[in-house]
Every structure is written in structure tokens, then in C-alpha cells.
Simulated scan of single mutants.
Amino acid sequence: MQPSSGALRQVALAGGLLFAMALHGAHAADDAGDKITIMVGGITKLIYLPARLTEQLGYFRDEGLNVELLSQPAGVDAENELLAGAVQAVVGFYDHTIDLQTKGKDVKAIVVFGQVPGEVEMVSSKAAGTVKSMADVKGKTLGVTGLGSSTSFLTQYLASQHGIASSAYTMLPVGADASFIAAIKQGRIDAGMTTEPTVSALQKAGDAKVLVDMRTVEGTRAALGGTYPAASLYVQDAWAESHKAQAVKLAHAFVRTMQFIHTHSAEEIAAQMPADYQKDKGLYVSALKASLPMYTADGKMPADGPATVLKVLSSFNPSVKGKHVDLSATYTNEFVGAK
């Protein structure tokens, strides 16, 4: 007896459905194994410690993620790699999300590592006699990582708080780490903005002193008027929407790291890091101790943070000045809070 045409249609439909489900399952498995490339704006900087620490602790692996970390010292260049689609995420300063929104780019921070910049304005020992505060920088040369960088906007803002216009001093791009130290030693800059472990290295050598300390909430509030979320993981909105499962896993891995940082000593954290990050172990631990107050405990955005960042950027970033910015679109706590 031949099956009816209706029965044949049902068999074909069921077979097609099973085939589609199999394809979807295979695609989902592929998505889970997709490599996520993260560009870090200077991977050895302690402000970005959570990136490599998460890898070292095996938390990416625990979430079933295939993550590759790359390092690009300038945040602007890392941002360009993201927009070009060469990387899926950036570990860099949150302020890039505000700047990019004014340029029509939809990017948001999905994990916040630093509730403060972790930046320190250092004055060279040679200039320390005449430069006692940012009120004394008129006619001086100030080092920044790059022109148009976060350090340049922060430098201009700090000077403006003392009524000093950006035309009254020179900003010189000197990078970070060894190149910053060389600029101080060679007298090419009188002062400059940098992070740990460069700060501790300069202090240990006696080459520079702290002028403005934004490694703590107290120091940052005194300098900028509020918390200033900085180091963060940001992605393009389109990627977060199309890869929600991966975004949640990525956020979970980083939140575990933030909790690890808050429940372990500087010595215990340093023990997890690669040996080439800490050529001088004592110096590295000392720098880490000084940096611990800047990290968030849960990866969430501090409530007063975005407004402080916008205030600073609106003062000196030509892309942001006078523009309307929807701060709620520049970050989300959705992924760090997801179960």
C-alpha cells in the first residue's frame, strides 16, 4: 500500500526540520568555538592587568572560550582595529565609547575594570623644585602617551582646573613604559602622565615624583570631581547583539578575575603573572599594591562615573565638545549581571 501524498509531505517536512536543527546545532557549536581576539592597549600595564590575569587563571578556558590577546600600546590604534573588524573586543579606556558615539559608531563597555584612571602625573626630579602642582606647568613640556589620547585630555583638564590654557605648555607624545622613562631621564619632558609599573620604577630610581595621583578613588575625586571609569572591555554593539552567549561568558570570566583580585594579596596575584612581566619582582608587587584600589569588585560601571568622563572630554575633545551624548548607550551591566 502506497503512503498518501499528505503522509509523504509530513515525512519530508519532518526530515527538513531535523536537517535544519542539525545545521543550527552545528552552527551553535561553531559559534562557541569561534576565536575572540582582544586588543589590549598595552598588555603589561597594571591598569589592564585583568586581561592577562584572566588568561593565566584559566577563566576563559573554563567558560569554553577561545581567546587570543594582542597588545597595541596606543588606545586609538586599538579602537581602529575594532572598527575595522580585525578584533572583536578592546581592553582600553571607557572614554573611547563616548568619543566614538559622537562619530556615529555604536560601541559600548560591557565590563569595567577600573573605577579610576590609574594614571599618575609624574614630575621629573630636575623640575620638581619649580613644578609643585599643575598650577606650575606654564611653559613646561608635558609627556602624554599620544596626542588625542586619554592622557592628553586628562592633562589638559588638570591644567585647566588651575586656569592654565593648553596653549601655555607643550604636550609631547612619549608613549609608555621604557620610552616614558627615557623621556624623563633625558630631560625631554618636565612632567608627564603614566601608569604602574612605570610610576614605581621612576620613584625607585629617584628620577621622578608624584604630582597628581589618580590610582585611588580619593585621589581621583580630588583631581576630577568624581570616579572616572577607565580600563574596560568594549565591543561593537552589533557584535554584542549577535554573540550574546559569548559576551556573557566573556563578562563572567572577567568578573571572576575581579573577584580574585579583591580576595588575594598583591603577592598572590603577582605569582599568577608571567615572569617576563616582573623582571624586578619586588618592584612589581609594590606597584601592584599601589594599584589595587583602582579595580572594581564586580565589573560594573560606577554610578557617577560616565558623567565625570563626559565632563572631562567635553572640555577638550573636539569630537565631544558641544555634542549630545547618550551615556546609557556607552556601557551596559547586562552581561556582567547575566546568570
Rank of each mutant, 00 (worst) to 15 (best):
M193Y: 05
A307F: 14
A247Y: 01
A109V: 13
A7R: 15
P318I: 08
A205T: 09
L250E: 00
G143M: 05
V116R: 01
T37R: 10
I98V: 12
Q236H: 09
Q115K: 03
S125P: 07
T145K: 02
A165S: 14
S5C: 05
Q161A: 12
M1E: 09
G192W: 00
D326Y: 06
G226Q: 04
A297V: 05
S179F: 10
Q115M: 02
Y234R: 08
V111K: 00
E119V: 00
V76G: 06
L23A: 15
A28W: 09
S328G: 09
V76Q: 14
K140I: 10
V248S: 01
I184A: 02
L288A: 02
A12L: 15
A290I: 03
V320N: 03
K279A: 09
I164Y: 08
R52S: 02
E63Q: 13
G282L: 08
Q101E: 12
A32P: 07
L288G: 00
H264R: 08
Q236T: 14
G305K: 00
A168W: 10
H27Y: 15
G129P: 05
R215D: 00
T102R: 13
V325A: 12
D95I: 07
V112D: 01
Q56G: 01
K321I: 08
A231G: 13
G305Q: 00
G148P: 08
E267Y: 10
A251N: 03
V67D: 00
F260N: 01
Y277I: 05
M258T: 00
Y94A: 03
S319I: 09
A329K: 15
H252Q: 11
M1S: 15
A178S: 12
G143Y: 02
A20Y: 07
Y284C: 05
L53W: 08
V11H: 14
K209A: 11
G219R: 04
A84F: 08
D106M: 09
A253F: 06
T332M: 10
V235T: 15
A303C: 15
Y94V: 06
E63I: 00
S167L: 12
S314N: 14
G192Y: 02
H96C: 05
N333V: 11
D326Q: 09
A238D: 11
T227H: 02
A275Q: 08
T54V: 12
S150W: 00
A128L: 12
